[in-house]
Computed example of a mutant assay.
Amino acid sequence: MKIQAYAAASPKAAFEPFEYEAGELRADDVLVEVEHCGLCHSDLSMLNNDWGRTAYPFVGGHEGVGKIVAIGDHVTHLKVDQHVGVGWFSGSCMHCQECMSGHHNRCGTVEETIVNRHGGFASHVLCKAEWALPIPEALDASKVGPLFCGGLTVFNPLVQNNIRPTQRVGVIGIGGLGHLALQFSNKWGCEVTAFSTSPDKEAEARKLGAHHFVNSKDESALKKIAGSLDMVLVAVNVGLDWSAYLNILRPGGVLHFVGAAPTSEFIPFQLIGGQKSISGSPLGSPATAVDMLEFCARHDLAPVTEHFPLAQINEAFEHLESGKARYRIVLDN
């Protein structure tokens, strides 16, 4: 079967129509006809080979949503015509300690949808059945794509860090990740503080679920809330004064990174004195993703999206790179 896609031939090149052979459907595979695919900043990083991991021609897209059109012989829990989503991970070994303990996203040989294979900027995408996640009927399939990367990325820390409804959570950065983190944390039952360098985002941050808003550039405002938060979720990829944010944490609190922030220094004694910690996480497991989707359906949560036809993929990338996206872009087939 021939798959119609859009591919870039080299770093920073434009996407052009590209055709490739789907290959043999393995016994544990599903083939998904893509209807919508989110455009994530990680797609831009991969396009430009910022991480030194990109193979060309590059077909990005790791927030794909569509219906299953074929299933492998060993797949029994999914069916043809079922709507599913495919995120950053498209396969895991299913036998290592991490997979067997339910942490498939930590598998040492986990398959990444757009690393050394072709992703969802296409008519179809292949993945292993365990990573084809059914979409609840209550969710709008045209908007749900960004949940499979951005959404799962900020939902998993609430689970991983055992955050309770009585606790206080801070979110640094009100963008593609942060706007979802605010919604999740609020509906989780937490008291939520938004941190941003853009004061004009305060009204929207509060609308998304923030109870408090702090200008990240205001050192006095940061000092006023010292020792008040149980988790600060870092959803930006810039360097900040992390010692200042460690100071914001209550004893036992965690500074959790999901944004690829550059290396920075901190004072180890800040961790020791209050038994605080620094952590990070790579998206989440299939089970956590299912919980996230059900959580969204229960609370009527969705990404804030802008839409482009897939044929306008280059215009969509320009919009993303300009920083104008509010807050996630979806490409529609």
Score class of each variant (00 low, 15 high):
Tyr6Asp: 14
Ala7Pro: 09
Ala8Ser: 11
Ala9Arg: 13
Ala9Leu: 08
Pro11His: 11
Phe15Tyr: 13
Leu25Ser: 00
Arg26Val: 13
Val30Arg: 04
Val30Ser: 05
Leu31Glu: 00
Glu33Ile: 05
Glu33Gln: 12
Cys40Lys: 00
Asp43Phe: 03
Ser45Cys: 11
Asn49Phe: 09
Asp50Ser: 14
Asp50Val: 08
Thr54Trp: 11
Phe58Asp: 10
Gly61Ala: 14
Gly61Ser: 15
Val65His: 14
Val65Asn: 10
Gly66Ile: 06
Gly66Gln: 10
Asp73Glu: 15
Asp73Ala: 15
Gln82Trp: 13
Gly87Leu: 11
Phe89Thr: 13
Ser92Pro: 05
Met100Asp: 12
Glu111Trp: 05
Glu111Tyr: 06
Ile114His: 03
His118Ala: 06
Lys128Gly: 00
Pro136Val: 02
Glu137Arg: 10
Glu137Asn: 12
Leu139Asn: 13
Ser142Gln: 08
Phe148Met: 12
Gly151Trp: 11
Leu152Gly: 05
Phe155Tyr: 15
Pro157Lys: 04
Pro157Trp: 04
Leu158Ala: 01
Val159Met: 05
Gln160Pro: 00
Asn161Gln: 10
Val171Ala: 00
Gly173Cys: 01
Gly175Thr: 00
His179Gln: 02
Ser185Trp: 03
Thr193Gln: 04
Thr197Tyr: 04
Asp200Gln: 03
Lys201Trp: 04
Glu202Ile: 08
Ala203Pro: 00
Gly209Pro: 02
Ser216Asn: 01
Glu219Pro: 00
Lys223Gln: 09
Ile225Ser: 01
Ser228Phe: 08
Ser228Trp: 07
Leu229His: 01
Ala244Glu: 04
Leu246Pro: 03
Asn247Thr: 08
Val254Ala: 09
Pro262Trp: 06
Pro262Ser: 09
Gly273Arg: 09
Gly274Val: 04
Gly274Tyr: 10
Ser279Lys: 15
Ser279Ala: 15
Pro286Cys: 10
His299Met: 10
Asp300Gln: 15
Pro303Gln: 11
Ala311Thr: 15
Gln312Asn: 15
Ala316Pro: 09
Ala316Lys: 08
Leu320Gly: 07
Gly323Ile: 15
Ala325Ser: 14
Asp332Met: 12
